[in-house]
């Protein structure tokens, strides 16, 4: 038992050390980074953060942009996926097998290969540089997982419930609104969290769709910072950027870990 605990500590160190190192770096002065073992008087600073927040546009802007994309994608995906998942849950078993296979391969597909075609669509429709438009490809990319998760949880509901509702006189819309959607709320919650995290983190499509600086999402903004001066030292401001970019996700993971775990495992198991 004691061994188990030691190993667990090892895992935690492996998982968290790189993140702590970023946090440490972000509070260091350049001198402290260059001479980590020397005894310097001005070791700690908040300057990295003030620099980041006072730049134009402020780094908070990117956080806001990612939040907008995350929320609108989650909303759009659920709007389309819930009715579709309901109808998938009613398909005959043989066809359902093929639908699931299609959804699973779409979920497995390394979507980065799609970016060129999606870029063409964005150009043709003139919807580049629009955060809300970005949620269209995002919700398509999340659709397979959302459909797999939601349709399997629709299917898990006892059929009696829906029939009792039918006998009570609820039509399709009322059954969905009053009975079925409330009952799959747990699955909806985990799906939403997964969609949000995906959209917050997505990189290649945001990179090609968004070119205006004030509309960049966080991952793209970070990579721009990284690309701006590759070998420049010190690193304090970058580290501050990574810390700021990590905090929202840190909170999400800690608050919603149950939903995340159930979403990921169900997604894999049911698929």
């Amino acid at each position: 038992m004691n061994n188990t605990r030691n190993y667990l500590c090892l895992i935690l160190i492996w998982s968290l050390a790189p993140i702590f190192w970023q946090a440490y770096t972000s509070f260091c002065t350049p001198e402290a980074l260059i001479y980590p073992l020397k005894n310097i008087s001005n070791r700690w600073t908040l300057e990295n953060y003030t620099l980041l927040l006072s730049s134009n546009p402020s780094f908070l802007r990117y956080l806001l942009n990612s939040t907008i994309v995350g929320i609108s994608t989650t909303f759009l995906t659920l709007l389309l996926a819930i009715p579709a998942a309901y109808s998938i849950s009613k398909i005959k078993p043989i066809i359902a097998g093929w639908v699931r296979l299609f959804l699973l391969s779409a979920a497995l597909f390394p979507y980065v290969l799609l970016f060129l075609s999606l870029l063409e669509i964005a150009r043709a429709l003139n919807i580049g540089n629009n955060l809300f438009a970005l949620s269209i490809p995002y919700s398509a990319l999340n659709m397979p997982l959302a459909l797999l998760l939601l349709s399997s949880s629709f299917k898990d509901l006892p059929i009696d419930l829906e029939e009792a509702a039918r006998l009570e006189g609820l039509n399709l819309w009322q059954r969905l609104r009053w009975i079925l959607i409330p009952l799959i709320a747990p699955a909806t919650a985990s799906t939403s969290i997964l969609i949000f995290i995906f959209s917050w983190n997505e990189y290649p499509i945001a990179l090609t769709w968004i070119s205006k600086t004030e509309l960049l999402t966080l991952p793209v903004a970070i990579s721009r910072i990284a690309g701006s001066s590759v070998y420049s030292v010190p690193y304090g401001a970058y580290a501050a950027a990574t810390v700021l970019g990590s905090i929202p996700l840190l909170l999400i993971v800690i608050i919603f870990q149950k939903q995340i775990v159930s979403g990921l495992t169900k997604g894999a198991v049911k698929g």
Partner: peptide, 9 residues
Amino acid sequence: ALPTTVMAL
């Protein structure tokens, strides 16, 4: 859960 680009940096 962290963005790949963040930790790549």
